[in-house]
Design a protein around this nucleic acid. Structure first.
Lengths: 345, 345
DNA sequence: ATCTTTAATGTAATCGATTACACGAATATA
DNA sequence: TATATTCGTGTAATCGATTACATTAAAGAT
């Protein structure tokens, strides 16, 4: 129950003023070498630790940055977070991680509480496609001295920077690859297309079909969540069609896994009968026993680092000098067994 | 770049004092109904938000709780965190998540920075078996008003509560199950046994052997890390023995996965030739295409909730009334294909 | 009509650190 | 020697909210 020592305690012990102690501790103005040394020694001896709260109150900076993601138990998000940490930690920032579990109301609450603890900025991947209709969020936006940076799941909002991948290209490349494998009836597991990432993957898919002279068939597109179970359900629907697809491009690795389970249970073979491609390069796609999963790598570490860099730039800039950046990384298709008829590995 | 409104702004506008405004806002002492209403309305109108920093500085409470884990990208830890969040959120606490990536120095830094931002408590799973030899950590301990609660990976330290599972039983049950399957030469992938959890799983394993009249063979125990790659390496060593084991009990699901990969590549069959059991019930153990993995469930949600409850009790208690609690949950063996010769599923 | 009570609000200290400004002493300059 | 600099510290305000204590005014008691 010991009280922490403050600069006042040090000052008292040394017969000085808190001001002098503060200056000595900060190497700032001209303090006599003797005093500085004395203060430093006494501080050490008394186990002095700066009270960051007082500092934050005074300076208006907390050196905390909030990161909001839908979930932390996916390799993609935890890798982005790692990238952010790597970039921000050396600059003295601490990362506060919050997860929304994809619930809009929790997202609102998390934003509010981060603003409350006076974070210096928020990096987030949105869970709510209608973020703007949201009071807490708008408060954040108005408060221009708290930078906001979107990563992966963004919205186009004036003045808000973002770091994403080229999801259109991801969708296009995946689909083109399936076409190259000889597939002609390619289904797509999409997700809520109010989110740009899912819309763009979908659009890339359509464009690839178009460019290859394949007619788009709306009945081959199913909207699901990113979970194994939902993937299974969607696959079931597709397999029960009169003319089932010969390939499925899923915008989620988790759903792709469910797809594979369902296909196998129905006695069909992958990739001979149906090819499957996922999205995100989750570790399990590489660890499958029989059917390693073709997927799209999103460079999450890089994404996190870039997002952090954008934050650092914005937090440094004063006033309106801030330029909005929209960085787009290029994804990479990783071909594996689940879509590769000539696979040897 | 608008300044935030403070109680002083409200007071000025209403010709009152900050004190009155504060009281009106807090429904605390007797404030006239009129004034209260007026203040509340004006606060709303001026978009007033309480500055938590000032509050924390004054009250010494931040309503932030730090959670330190080795990694966030395992289902086990993210589920524990979820349990903690569920319990603490309704009480007004916010959870700050930090990961150490199993690096001792980062653990120290994270502890320090959490103490710096004046968290009201720390819930952690240790990454450093020699935590006590650590300056930052000892500071935390001395500062009795910041409760510390260990979960899963704990150390026996006087005055520090913990919530764990009965790892001994987990190890015992897993081994007994393998014996029941007819296995007689059971290997064990352990991990650094300076950590209680790994030591106890190991001891449970030994006791089960003993109770069944099987002689303990030290050469069948290998110390590895919790990763797929390390699991593969360890399996290689075991398979290359003159008399390879007929079962492998791994204290990590990730390592168990590596074991399975290696066994399959060497042409052996699971569970016919070798049985495998993991630990933690990570989702992928259920999702394996051929060989779903037998494992031990640790009830992470429950563990998180309990740890949070202990924290709440301790933070409420003043002074030394604090009683140290050591809660031990009971794990459950989940039998699946990888160890079950009569499996049908 | 005078005194006591109480309801409602104001005053000012506090939490811990920073910093513009002021001031005395030592040193440099003319 | 008188004056101008420079150096090292002290003084006091500030960040925003809380709260023990003081004060005022109105209501109630006698």
């Amino acid at each position: 129950m010991k009280k922490k020592t403050t600069i006042y305690d040090i000052a008292a012990k040394l017969g000085l003023t808190a001001a002098t102690v503060s200056r000595a501790l900060n190497n700032n103005t001209k303090i006599s070498l003797n005093t500085r040394k004395l203060v430093l020694e006494t501080a050490l001896e008394m186990n002095y630790e700066q009270n960051k709260l007082a500092l934050a109150l005074k300076s208006g900076k907390s050196y905390n940055v909030g990161v909001i993601v839908p979930r932390i138990d996916s390799n993609f998000f935890s890798s982005v977070i790692r990238g952010i940490e790597e970039e921000l930690y050396p600059k003295g920032y601490h990362v506060i991680i919050c997860q929304t579990h994809n619930q809009e109301n929790i997202e609102v609450e998390k934003i509010n509480s981060l603003v409350n603890v006076q974070v210096d900025g928020i990096l987030m991947s949105i869970s709510n496609a209608n973020l703007e209709e949201n009071k807490g969020f708008n408060k954040l936006l108005k408060n221009k001295n708290t930078p906001l940076v979107f990563f992966d799941r963004k919205k186009d909002i004036k003045g808000v920077s973002s770091v994403t991948i080229d999801d259109f290209k991801g969708g296009y490349d995946a689909t083109q690859h399936l076409l190259d494998q000889g597939c002609r009836r390619i289904a797509h597991l999409s997700n809520d297309r109010k989110f740009e990432i899912f819309r763009n993957r979908y659009l890339g898919y359509r464009q690839a079909l178009l460019d290859n002279g394949i007619e788009f068939d709306e009945s081959l597109v199913i909207e699901t969540h990113s979970s194994v179970l939902d993937g299974r359900r969607a696959a079931r629907l597709l397999l029960d069609m009169e003319t089932p697809p010969d390939a499925i491009f899923s915008s989620s690795d988790f759903a792709a896994l469910g797809v594979i389970q369902e296909i196998k249970e129905s006695g069909l073979h992958i990739p001979e009968d149906i090819c499957v491609v996922g999205f995100s390069n989750e570790p399990f796609t590489r660890f499958m026993e029989l059917t390693t999963i073709t997927t799209v790598d999103q460079y999450p570490l890089e994404m996190g680092r870039k997002a952090a860099q954008v934050f650092l730039e914005e937090v440094g800039n004063t006033e309106d000098a801030k330029t909005t950046q929209n960085i787009v990384l290029t994804p990479e298709l990783i071909v594996r067994r689940s879509s590769s008829k000539k696979w040897k590995g």
